[in-house]
Write a protein that binds this DNA or RNA. Structure first.
Lengths: 332, 332
DNA sequence: CTGAAAGCGCTAACAA
DNA sequence: TTGTTAGCGCTTTCAG
């Protein structure tokens, strides 16, 4: 059933039908006829055909490393809530943390199909830059802070610094760090720098062997904690880049008989469910992931409406949630 | 830049270009010319225009309650992996557990835009039936077992029965249940029936006050456990429909001084991360969510290819993971 | 307010 | 193998 067939059934012209669906001028008489015919036939116009004419797809591409990460899921929910409100749909691509697939997807979205793109990437290479500059539709970066691009990001540095400082203020003097690949600007680099800043501001020196780089999961956190605790000198607090890593680290600490927080404190960034129900609930920093998603979507929609918008960076605040994993009386 | 402009630049005909992108007959000479021109211009054909002609969108609609549930995320990852392999893209809609939005999305997908739909729904109403029967593209249901429709589902009944039996075999005689809305056929109804079956097969009678219905989250599990334990007679094991609920229940049990598993055992369905790192790791049943997603995608692709395919139901097996929350010596 | 007609960018049937 | 040509279903002038 196409617009011509339908127009015939409704007893009106093609134009009238088109106007009905695009709120143009229309007499009530025709409007009613069309509504009745819709009732009868279930007709609805082809979005593809419409896109050919209007060059608008009402589709937004979302590229993310993986869905089964609480933070990515929350961002996506934020995006989705705003998008659906404005009649846009969400075209999802996951890249399994493979940034070549990220580039591929951008290429795929480059000229066609979508009106804009939201990219949750973790690394930023020259390849990214090249492709991004070739894009003909607006792109919003989530989670990264990159001059010259539209970004919605978190204060990873500040959150990490605050969490680390919190543990040092409670008397820790041998801080350890389990983070992720420093290629990852936000979760890797910025969080590490925040940690290091807090350590140096406290006048402490960092032991090289107290630095570990893990994957984004529990098992890796466990493994790295084991390695960390295999040295002769022991840390008295561990700052972890993510809650999952912290959960794994805690698992190992407890298995090896350490009491938390008495023997060793643990804190991590992210405020995911896992930190709340861990054996000892984990002190964490809440980053506003869902808000990041909805703000990114809003930013994208304005960029679509107004293509000459100048790039802007929106950094969202965080807050600290103290839990038992750092519950020690202060030692000024 | 459209196909005509591009053909001119490449020095070939429109047809040649079209054939290049749809692997028709083409001499190497033209192929090379076209490749060079692509290099120069970055041309790629408009997918919308193609869809108008071919009536194929290479888009699959996915409807799910919410992303921030580990199971939904895993299913979606499974779907995505297969889809991208076959050159399809994924149009995602989340319904926030509002089944009217589910219907709306189906309507939206009904005639247009997508080549098929995968629906992760929890309830199944007459409205669903009506809309489903009107669909012009194939639909696969994930997580539900419904005669007459294409389904990929889990053995919720079996998993629940096995978990409950496991606790009863270890000597529990006062079983309690914290489940979800029985409108939810799989997680609500089937899991409850599995629980009840194990209880009755063990020759036990179920106390009415040992049945609670919770939401799908930790806080609700906590709340319901509190209610459960407020009665004079106390249960000695709790079967929970989901890991999140179990995590919450465990939190309450421990706060009220109960030892797990000595005083009370806990088990739940789902094998999510949370159960692994809970204060006392939780015995669970692994359902193959990711596989369910990829199988659903495969089923959909064959239904797209072969529209007269007769409906089929694929039920995936589960396995039990015993953890400390039920670690009691058997009392036969 | 309305309808006829042109044309969006592409594919596919046809004749060469 | 190739190019010409007729649409796919829709929107949008334009003339009424």
């Amino acid at each position: 059933m196409n617009i011509s067939d339908f127009a015939k059934i409704a007893g009106v012209s093609k134009s009238a039908v088109s106007r009905y669906f695009n709120d143009g001028y229309l007499s009530n008489d025709k409007r009613e006829k069309i509504e009745q015919a819709i009732e009868k036939t279930g007709y609805s116009p082809s979005l593809s055909a419409r896109s050919v004419r209007t060059r608008v797809t009402k589709l937004v591409g979302v590229i993310l490393p993986k869905l089964s990460s609480e933070s990515a899921a929350r961002v996506t929910e934020g995006i989705s809530s705003v998008l659906s409100e404005y009649g846009y749909e969400l075209l999802l691509v996951t890249t399994s943390n493979n940034y070549h697939k990220e580039i591929e997807s951008l290429e795929l979205f480059r000229q066609n199909r979508v009106d804009g793109v939201i990219l949750l990437s973790t690394v930023f290479t020259d390849l990214h830059k090249t492709v991004l500059n070739k894009m003909r539709v607006p792109v919003i970066l989530v989670g990264q802070n990159l001059k010259g691009y539209n970004c919605v990001c978190h204060d990873d540095f500040g959150a990490s610094k605050s969490l680390t400082k919190l543990m040092l203020d409670k008397g820790a003097v041998e801080p350890a760090y389990i983070g992720v690949d420093p290629e990852d600007k936000a979760a890797g680099e910025a969080r590490r720098k925040g940690f290091e800043k807090a350590v140096s501001e406290a006048g402490l020196t960092l032991k090289k062997e107290f630095i570990e780089i893990a994957e984004f999961n529990i098992d890796s956190g466990y493994e790295k904690a084991r390695h960390l605790l295999s040295h002769r000198s022991k840390p008295d607090c561990i700052f972890c880049a993510t809650d999952s890593i912290a959960a794994g680290a805690m698992l190992y600490c407890r298995e090896s008989g350490l009491r938390i927080p008495e023997d060793i404190m643990i804190a991590a960034v992210g405020d995911s469910k896992i930190g709340k129900i861990a054996a000892v609930p984990i002190t964490t920093a809440h980053l506003h992931y869902k808000t990041a998603g909805s703000e990114a979507a809003k930013m994208l929609l304005s960029a679509i409406k107004q293509p000459d918008l100048i790039p802007r960076i929106l950094q969202l605040d965080f807050y600290i949630i103290e839990r038992r994993s750092t519950e020690k009386s202060e030692t000024v």
